[in-house]
Amino acid sequence: MNDQEQNAVSNSAQVNKEKPKQGFNFLMIGSGQMFTAMIISGFIVGYFIDYLLSTTPIFMLICGVLGMIGGAQKVQHMVNRMDKQSTKDVNNG
């Protein structure tokens, strides 16, 4: 990477901030998998905490439930964002 490119990368957070973030709509493609992946990761994280603290299966269950809540919350957040965007698009014609 030359100097110009490195500057472009380091300044990228300040560049094009006003542009619409259409790409986030692509997240909807994986919303279902994200929900299940959150539950699976909850169990994995819980398993490792239990492994460290020798408390099997307490944290696995707690983190599994937290993963499910987090997954539902994340999907709802994504759907809300999509909904707002669609409403905005309809209002703008």
Binding site: A37, M38, V45, L66
Partner: peptide, 21 residues
């Protein structure tokens, strides 16, 4: 404490969902 665990789960879920899909 709940935030730390939940955000950690959320971050871990990204590569897991990418790979498993």
């Amino acid at each position: 404490p709940v935030n730390i665990v939940m955000t950690f789960i959320e971050e871990i879920a990204k590569p897991i969902s990418l790979a498993l899909r």
